[in-house]
Nucleic acid binder design. Structure first.
Lengths: 235, 235, 235, 235
DNA sequence: AATGAATGAGTCTTCATTCAT
DNA sequence: TATGAATGAAGACTCATTCAT
């Protein structure tokens, strides 16, 4: 796997042993809350209980700290999906397990702040986005697709487009993770993750429709009902 | 209505009425790409074809510009979902139409940069998150839930938890919109929106499982297969 | 008299006829209130009921406007003191009249804002200070000194140092004019000019002491009573 | 206590404790010379031998710096007048001493730049004017009035209006302080403070008139002698 | 290794000044 | 003449980074 992390490791992996993890935790928190640009290194230092200068003993600058935050936090789950073994279980069960696993190991922890961080900063630091895609997203997509294919092969699942179905399967969990870090907080919502995941699993496995039928074509009927619909400007 | 890319008239010939929209377009682009904090007003001005000072003739400061970007871009779709009328169509068809509508009217336009912007800045500007939730998200959730309930009432759908199912229904579209603005770009992916939406619609309507059954309980089987799984720190 | 104004007139005196006096009045008000640097030309324009650009039709820039404000407002009283004729009155009466005249013609009008303006800006625009000194202050000093000398010559006054006594005679009126424009306003005081001037006139003519004696020497007794007197730093 | 002009230690050796006073000295000088609005913080910093950013380590912004300049420079003389003790001296002697004291402790130092500063900025920062009035002016007025009353009570002084007489007594010293900072500089005058104060003291104690009489009423005679007297506009 | 005072480049913001109408 | 939108130089302020201790 030609991942970004391999290229990056020589640069980022120095002083791994003695690098205080408090710094990375503090940085994830502050970066996650404020975004990279608005985060002040002094706040990170304060939160880690050290002085501003100390940060520079471990990370040569703000950008390196960001990269370390992402890579170090992610490293424990790098390749995790790829190592998931086939189980002697129904495909439905394995899909459900996989989605719950993602949530347990990722979405429900502060690690999910990483998602927000990467989405926000991927334009400024494309290698971070690439790294995240290679090490986290793609393996999960591949794993979910393998489950789907296995289910189709065994006659348990119907699925015409396993590649995109895998992407779609992940999506609500990603959204949920983002949600917990943003809208839930600012709107005083309190989305229940288990209820959310269960709804998702239930829907994608059994479907909404009692009587099976082809996917409806987009009739555009709803669109027609919007009076005076006009955007600000065509983009 | 002129497109953002047209730069016809010389500076001085452009009228006061045109400026705000030109600035809002430019600002959405720059804010969406860089984030609020990292965006330079000079870049916004340059993109709008004006000088730094001109921005301040229309928006009293950077924050007001951000708020205007969000509110003005969103205003055309405010209440849109709430105005969608019931159709004489199957519920399946209406769900499909609704999801396609969302994409046509929102996800596929530069408006979707708003989502990223709001997720990134909701902590710093909670009123923006709140506004977006009240005016865009909640109405759509409500609309989708009404469709689900209608389908259940008519015997067409099975759905135990219409509230959360509505949230889940939206999620992949949100993710897709974010994706187009971040990972697709930085990883040279080129996710096909129609194929993605169709997979989503197909899955949620018909379900993956050929033989219907109860939602599997989370067995945690996948988790057990991960060796040495350990996060950076407990969060 | 080689006054600054002669050198300056060629530059400042243009367009005298059609130059709107509202502009100068507005400028005096705004400059007097905010000071030169903090005054916005737009405020001057607004107060004069014209647009920003119009100011530039009459004054080539902010500095010229300031100079015009000073010179034009002062010109009616330029040389006024020098033209005061000897009266067939007691010197005491003439001193009193002179001080009341200063107040009537100068201190009590918005012209006194000029004093504040000049004191504030004399460092930045020394020629203004010089002009004011030559055209207003010096003639008044000379006039007052001439009255004092006349009084001494006629045996009505005792005065050892007519030059400095003249300066001192003016001083309370200057202070009063400044006071009305600053402290009176911000501290809600309401100093009564007539009562103030009368006290001044009474004191300088008749003196406080009932029994005449020499000016006491500074014994420094009061100083000795201040415990721990210590400034911020020696200057 | 080192003087402002000493620049001994290299930047890095100066301690945190020294900075504020160095900055306040520099700021008083620059504010006093240019006025608040026209003063550039960079000039203050340069004069204090530090960089722009350093100012903000000690004062959160320009306005706070101004307030600190005023309050810190004034604090040593706050209440000073109120603490002046009665002396076993003639009231004339005490008046003379008091006026010389004011000059020694205030007018002759760079503290007198404060007066100019406050007069210039009292409109913009009324609390500064108020503070100065409460802490410096009013106590001095009260002190001088107490001396006058004491003199009247003991039969040494005649004074009908001690309240206003006290105000008038201060005024020439205030004017002198302002003068040294403005007109003296720009007009190359060199007013001799001692001669000035002595003239003032002599005049107010003994009076100009050899033969005592009532305060003359304003006859307006001088006014009548001015031909074509006409202000710019009625104010 | 750790500190935190100091630095100065970079950005927001203001406003004198210009200029096409 | 008059307007006011537009400009851009200048200055307040922030904060990543350095460095003497």
């Amino acid at each position: 796997m030609k991942s970004c992390s391999e290229k990056l490791k020589p640069r980022w992996a120095r002083r791994k042993e003695d690098r205080p993890q408090e710094l990375l935790c503090a940085a994830l928190h502050v970066f996650g809350e404020k975004g990279y640009a608005a985060a002040r290194l002094e706040d990170v230092a304060k939160r880690a209980g050290v002085s501003k200068g100390t940060v520079y003993l471990y990370y040569s600058n703000k950008e390196e700290l960001l990269k370390a935050v992402v890579t170090e936090h992610i490293s424990p789950i790098v390749g995790e999906a790829a190592n998931l073994k086939d189980e002697k279980a129904t495909s439905a069960q394995m899909i459900s397990d996989a989605l719950h696993l993602w949530w347990d190991r990722y979405g429900s922890t502060e690690l999910s702040a990483i998602t927000k961080l990467i989405l926000s900063e991927a334009n400024a630091f494309p290698e971070l986005g690439h790294f995240f895609y290679d090490e986290v997203i793609k393996p999960w997509w591949d794993y979910l697709e393998s489950l789907l294919k296995q289910g189709v092969a065994s006659g348990e699942f119907r699925c015409q487009d396993t590649e995109y179905a895998a992407k779609v399967l992940c999506a609500p969990l990603v959204t949920l993770g983002l949600w917990k870090h943003t809208m839930d907080a600012c709107c005083n919502l309190n989305t229940d993750p288990m209820r959310y995941i269960d709804s998702h699993v239930q829907m994608v496995l059994n479907g909404l429709s009692i009587k099976q039928h082809d996917t409806p074509h987009n009739t555009g009927s709803a669109v027609r009902n919007i009076a005076g619909a006009g955007g600000l400007q065509p983009h």
